[in-house]
Amino acid sequence: MSLLECRQVSKIFGALTALDHADLSVKPNEFHGLIGPNGSGKSTLLKCIAGAEIPTSGSVLLSGVDITGLTPAERAEAGLSLKFQITAVLAELSVYDNVLLAQQSQSSWLSLMRSRSRGALHERVMDTLQRFKLADRADDIAGTLSHGQQQWLEIAMALAREPKLLLLDEPTAGMSPQERRATGELLAPMRERCSLLIVEHDLDFIRDICDSLTVLDQGQIVASGRTQDVQEDERVKSAYLSHA
């Protein structure tokens, strides 16, 4: 059974059809790439899955449960997590506090008032920072991190709730080649924990990390399947890859 299933998802903004009856399926522990030219509807589809946008029609299912009408907070509880395209770390707080904020989200407000989980979460926060090479910057305010480090911090925060599915919107945007490589290395071990759906322009990164691929063009799915197969698809070559 698919972990995520998008059925005939459409999104219309006024006269613009950003998504046109898009189908998408992601299996458990699969790394799935979502590519397409600018304006093809990749980010809109990701937002419809995450709850940042509500589809005009169609449905989104997670583990067989329809989550189309749920709020972002309810989707997070259902096992979905999102890293935004533009880095959205809490720039005035420390790196440590950013991760703590993400990790404590399962506690009740009453327990948070009494700071009951702060001590218990400390090891987890530090382990996460270690994993993302940010432990030695834990006390620094997040706004002082480099762009690449802010992207890693975002991913660390998105993984805090141990989601079933992590949605990554251009995780390597603005990164140096070394940082991109490091990002791939950071993500690889996640395969055992969750599935990834990645929107990315860097095709080399997608080829290296993804098991399967979906190509969008003008709001429609052009091809979907194993990465190797999709790359060989003539429609994909003409719609996207030949221009990349």
Partner: peptide, 19 residues
């Protein structure tokens, strides 16, 4: 920790809904 959530709301309310 409740205050940390308030700090999150004050800075980026839309972001922390996704947590």
């Amino acid at each position: 920790q409740f205050g940390l959530v308030l700090a999150g709301i004050r800075q980026r309310e839309e972001r922390i809904k996704f947590f």
